[in-house]
Design a protein around this nucleic acid. Structure first.
Lengths: 204, 204
DNA sequence: GTAGCCTGAATGAACAATCATTCGGTCCGT
DNA sequence: ACGGACCGAATGATTGTTCATTCAGGCTAC
């Protein structure tokens, strides 16, 4: 039986590392456990990654890029900030359903210990584009005033808060609930003092 | 002076553990580092804590109780949900300014690895009382409908998101900014479709 | 076709460093 | 002079990483 699978050993290691890092955190995971979970020998990991630190950085960037890729699928500018926010939120919900471990790894852990400059730069670039979305909306009057980074933190923070509540069993979180809450969270961005309603774009 | 020096060695260990756990995480902190940072010998820690795990649990509960104590200072029911939310939010801001490490330790790390049943029960009790606040507001029509735990997660998540943004240097977060954003976050709880304004209590 | 070589991925025992924890001994308040 | 707080070197387990070795399969020479 011809076994396909040339260099997806690297992918197996990354997948095992994601599962373990997400569950118990970088510092509590031994390389030998990652190797065992990936079905390879301990030394094999070092064929693909120079060190545990580099493995963690590769994983971090892979997850960040996957999330960023999902978000960049939204058409840049179309029907205004309200509609664009709707698409962004839907992307988040989709990603949370498709790759929950990646999101939880990114948002439920502190990465300072191992993050290198390249990873930090990637993270900063993504944050900057999120802040830019808010700035555009502010210029057109569709988004309230205030530090764009603060508004981004509010919105993304509430999304992560929902996921964490689901993760810790405090709340049953599914795509339906998240979709329902979209307009509630939009209230964080909408200019105050006037009612805001459903997004422009209809259903699929 | 009287009997100081007795059990504030325990406090010194807890303080050192908080600082280190918060900065790099449980798994990346050696007991010897905690001891050195607290100014005691390695073995001394075991006079006060049976193990590293128990030390972490004691610290976790201390932080949770400090936060809960701050929040319980708000008078239970006075001028309605809007005013009570204002006091809760102010408590959060106060606590974040007074004990930033405690809040960061609680909210920026995954504690599953070491949390025991008592710690989990304490956490659940605090969450339940937060959900109850929302339920009361829903009954009186001052808070929008929806799963109370979800609304709590949205509000607390956005608060934590702000702190994290400040912590990671994406944003300069001070008490003034947090206070400014109070009414924005209240928008997550206020019933939709009508404008909501400033809290009852005046002041500066 | 096939024997023989060659490359480099894969292995897992071995290694030094570090870990959490222990314990015999010192010190001090009473 | 007694008991417990305190120390810090000792202990054995575990850590991240290395390296001599194995082995599969593609290449060349004939």
């Amino acid at each position: 039986m011809g076994d396909d699978g040339r260099l997806d050993r690297r992918a197996a290691v990354l997948a095992a590392a994601l599962e373990l890092f997400e569950r118990v955190g970088y510092g509590n995971v031994a390389m030998s456990k990652i190797a065992a979970s990936a079905g390879v020998a301990a030394g094999t990991i070092y064929t693909y990654f120079r060190s545990k630190e580099e493995l963690a950085n590769a994983l971090y960037r892979e997850c960040k890029l996957a999330l960023a890729g999902e978000l960049l699928d939204v058409a840049p500018d179309d029907g205004g900030a309200r509609a664009e926010f709707g698409r962004v939120w839907r992307s988040l919900v989709t990603f949370a359903a498709a790759q929950p471990a990646a999101l939880s790894f990114l948002e439920n852990h502190r990465h300072d210990v191992y993050l290198d400059d390249e990873s930090k730069a990637l993270s900063a670039a993504i944050d900057a584009s999120a802040a830019d979305f808010v700035r555009r909306g502010q210029r057109s009057g569709e988004i309230r005033s205030g530090p764009p980074e603060a508004l981004v933190a509010l919105v993304f923070g509430s999304f992560v808060g929902l996921l964490r509540a689901g993760h810790e069993g405090r709340l049953s979180v599914d795509s339906a609930l998240l979709t329902e809450l979209e307009s509630t969270v939009w209230g964080l961005l909408a200019p105050p003092g006037r009612p805001h309603d459903t997004p422009a774009g209809g259903g699929t």
